[in-house]
Amino acid sequence: MIANYGYQDGSGEYYITIDTDRCIECEGRWCVGACPQSLFVIEADDYDDEVATIAEGARKKLKEKCAACKPAGGHESLPCIDACRPGAISHSW
């Protein structure tokens, strides 16, 4: 499943995308520890696969949570994307 979690801030509309099929084989679950805001959790999805997802309570606050990793002046690489070895996580900017 491809899960897209979107948010809007003053500069535009962005999406964090998780290709959860790639999570199934993942052993390290590196995303969980990599995000300074603890956005990622591993949960059984509706079809009983253990996959990464954005914590339910954080989905409404993405624009605040992600802001710290994205200062307006310059885009550096994001810790979540860097940590994910299966390449499941992407971010639309």
């Binding site: 499943m1 899960a3 897209n4 979107g6 948010y7 079809y47 993405l62 624009k63």
Partner: peptide, 12 residues
Amino acid sequence: GKVQNFIMNDKC
């Protein structure tokens, strides 16, 4: 009817 892809937004 099995989900392949979905997109959601922060709630407003």
